[in-house]
């Protein structure tokens, strides 16, 4: 699952959103690092819809313009949960290795000091 797909699914967890709503939420979730362009967003939505991870929730007309809202499906929820578990495992490993490295770095000067 690519980062834009992951973020778009995450953006739909709490409520159905329309295109620009997803763009805004993705930007917020990524702390401004991912700013989806409209063409990219609809490429992501096409892929997610084709895999049955999101579906159309409702259509509204705002200021004479069509606005479609998308919602997360049960499959989408499962897919997101699997991805979160996978990422959590990676995070756990990274955290453990960083802790081990800090421990090693903390020990090294004391050994050096002891020898001196």
């Amino acid at each position: 699952m690519t980062e834009p797909m992951f973020l778009a699914l995450t953006a739909l967890v709490d409520e159905p959103r329309h295109g620009y709503g997803i763009v805004q939420e993705v930007e917020r979730l990524s702390e401004g690092k991912v700013q989806l362009k409209i063409g990219t967003l609809y490429g992501v939505l096409d892929r997610l819809a084709a895999e049955g991870l999101v579906e159309l929730d409702r259509e509204e007309v705002q200021s004479g313009r069509l606005r479609r809202y998308y919602r997360l499906t049960d499959s989408g929820e499962h897919a997101l949960q699997s991805e979160v578990s996978r990422l959590a495992g990676t995070l756990q490993t990274a955290t453990e290795r960083l802790s081990a490295r800090r421990g090693a770095v903390a020990v090294r000067p004391s050994i050096a000091g002891g020898a001196a």
Binding site: H18, G19, I38, L66, R68
Partner: peptide
């Protein structure tokens, strides 16, 4: 299928 909602999203942005 997509033009109207893409235009809506683009103009919102």
């Amino acid at each position: 299928e997509r033009e109207e909602e893409m235009v809506d999203a683009f103009l919102d942005a």
